[in-house]
């Protein structure tokens, strides 16, 4: 079984804390904005030049001068600001952004707090959590936590530490689909989404 993409986003949303400036990458991370827990105040940054990104516009109110990094039309939140790309990446590189959920190379080079949202395997069923990367790297040892359809894992020097597992997913399944080294604690709670 495992989590859907929306459930992965919902689980990551549990990591949000009030007052966070958050950069969301393209793909599953974008969905995180739909699950901000009630009472939590977040400012979303999109690296093409907006801090305080609000919801998608109502039909007929799309503005070609207002898009997110995924090139979708957006609206500003109250208190939003626009800026050029140098300031935008300076916000990230300068560690002013509190949390990054996946993202581009500049993001991974400088954030202290990066969560990756991804499926555990590729469409061929091969593990995406590996001992060594086979694709060109965009960053080196930059990710803190990974949320997949099967599990929540922390990236440690020793390997992938399983923190939580998806409902109905047992450890054997996680082991089968993880090529990299796993650290398996005695007790692994279920992901609550």
């Amino acid at each position: 079984m495992g989590l859907t993409k929306n459930q992965i986003a919902k689980r990551i949303a549990q990591e949000l804390q009030s007052g966070y400036y958050v950069n969301l990458g393209i793909g599953i991370p974008t969905l995180v904005a739909n699950y901000v827990p009630e009472g939590i105040e977040i400012a979303f940054q999109s690296e093409n030049g907006i801090l305080g990104m609000g919801p998608f516009p109502m039909p007929g109110e799309e503005d070609p001068d207002l898009i997110n990094a995924g090139k979708q039309t957006i609206t500003p939140q109250l208190g939003a600001s626009y800026f050029d790309s140098s300031i935008s990446f300076g916000m990230i590189r300068g560690k002013h952004i509190d949390l990054t959920v996946l993202g581009a190379m500049d993001l991974v080079a400088s954030s202290d707090n990066i969560i990756v949202a991804m499926m555990h395997t590729n469409p061929k069923g091969e593990s995406k959590l590996r001992t060594e990367c086979t694709l060109p790297l965009t960053g080196v040892r930059c990710v803190k936590r990974i949320v997949t359809d099967l599990a929540v894992l922390d990236v440690t020097k020793e390997g992938f530490l399983i923190k939580e597992r998806a409902k109905g997913v047992d450890i054997e399944e996680i082991k089968r689909f993880t090529q990299g080294k796993l650290i398996i604690p005695d007790e692994i709670p279920e992901i609550q989404v």
Binding site: P55, F56, P57, M58, P59, E61, E62, P64, D65, I67, G70, K71, Q72, T73, I74
Partner: peptide, 11 residues
């Protein structure tokens, strides 16, 4: 001013 990915709220 073409829009590449017109995205709106579900109504």
């Amino acid at each position: 001013k073409r829009i590449e990915r017109r995205t709106v709220q579900n109504t």
